Amino acid sequence: MNELVRLSKRMSELGLSSRREADEWIAKGWVKVDGKVVSELGSKVLPSQKITIEKQASAEQSRKATILINKPVGYVSGQAEDGYQPAVVLIKPENRWEEDKSPMKFHRDQLKSLVPAGRLDIDSVGLLVLTQDGRVAKKLIGETTEIEKEYLVRVRYTKPGKLPDADLQRLNHGLMMDGKKLLPAKVTWQNDDQLRFILKEGRKRQIRRMCDMVGLKVTGLKRVRIGNVRLGNLPEGQWRYLRDDEQF
């Protein structure tokens, strides 16, 4: 606890900001350490020192948008690729859900630096989070995230009979991917052809690959929850703002 750490790193650890935000605020003189303004980039602090931010920083942060979208099939989560459009193109006034209760008003600046906080495959649908807020991105995709993600997955068994209970248990815990053991999951049958997956990690095409390992073919995949935030009745292809009373 007596080792010096970069101020921006410490601010990120405390959940005050992302590292990039921290550097911007430090340069603007909006950060105080033990009551004194620190404006030099690369400054270091002790973990025991008190860090506070000016009201301007809080106000700037509160204006940053976090948007929930019900992504349809055929859109990629991030940058355009292979001729497919990114989900961000759906964020326009005419696609805003009419039942969105947020008082935020849409303006084009909200599309700047709006990044996906986690992936959703091109052939998957459901809840996708796009945010300008580095704290949200870190919480959802950081290395130490504990946030659950819930999926409804339609499957077809490619072998005779039904999926053995032992293979269902393997889906819950025991599979390896890319030479590394997967974290425990919660996988249960919802009906004859639909599974519910609850994961705390998100490797590329993880659910499809997990199912493949036990002889299941995924025919549909929908993300319905991230942490405490649910897709709910948000229509496919439409979006809404994260409300002030919602926490992942």
Rank of each mutant, 00 (worst) to 15 (best):
residue 1 M to S: 12
residue 3 E to K: 07
residue 4 L to I: 10
residue 6 R to W: 00
residue 11 M to T: 02
residue 15 G to T: 00
residue 23 D to V: 05
residue 24 E to W: 10
residue 25 W to L: 05
residue 26 I to N: 08
residue 28 K to I: 01
residue 29 G to W: 12
residue 31 V to W: 01
residue 32 K to V: 02
residue 33 V to M: 00
residue 36 K to P: 03
residue 36 K to V: 13
residue 41 L to R: 13
residue 42 G to Q: 12
residue 42 G to H: 06
residue 45 V to P: 05
residue 56 Q to H: 04
residue 56 Q to A: 12
residue 57 A to L: 11
residue 60 E to R: 01
residue 62 S to N: 11
residue 62 S to V: 03
residue 63 R to Q: 15
residue 68 L to Y: 03
residue 69 I to P: 11
residue 72 P to Y: 08
residue 77 S to Q: 12
residue 82 D to T: 13
residue 84 Y to M: 09
residue 85 Q to R: 15
residue 93 P to D: 04
residue 95 N to A: 06
residue 95 N to D: 04
residue 95 N to C: 05
residue 100 D to V: 03
residue 103 P to G: 08
residue 111 L to C: 09
residue 116 P to V: 09
residue 116 P to E: 08
residue 118 G to S: 09
residue 123 D to G: 02
residue 124 S to W: 06
residue 125 V to W: 03
residue 126 G to D: 05
residue 128 L to N: 11
residue 131 T to H: 01
residue 134 G to Y: 05
residue 134 G to V: 06
residue 137 A to S: 15
residue 138 K to C: 01
residue 140 L to G: 04
residue 143 E to L: 06
residue 146 E to V: 11
residue 147 I to G: 05
residue 152 L to Q: 08
residue 160 P to A: 10
residue 163 L to A: 04
residue 165 D to A: 06
residue 166 A to W: 09
residue 166 A to C: 12
residue 167 D to V: 02
residue 167 D to T: 00
residue 167 D to E: 08
residue 167 D to M: 08
residue 167 D to K: 14
residue 172 N to Y: 03
residue 184 P to I: 01
residue 194 Q to N: 11
residue 202 G to S: 10
residue 203 R to V: 09
residue 205 R to Q: 14
residue 210 M to G: 10
residue 211 C to L: 06
residue 215 G to F: 09
residue 224 V to R: 10
residue 225 R to V: 07
residue 227 G to D: 01
residue 227 G to A: 01
residue 229 V to H: 10
residue 233 N to K: 15
residue 233 N to I: 07
residue 238 Q to G: 02
residue 243 R to T: 12
residue 244 D to K: 13
residue 248 F to I: 15
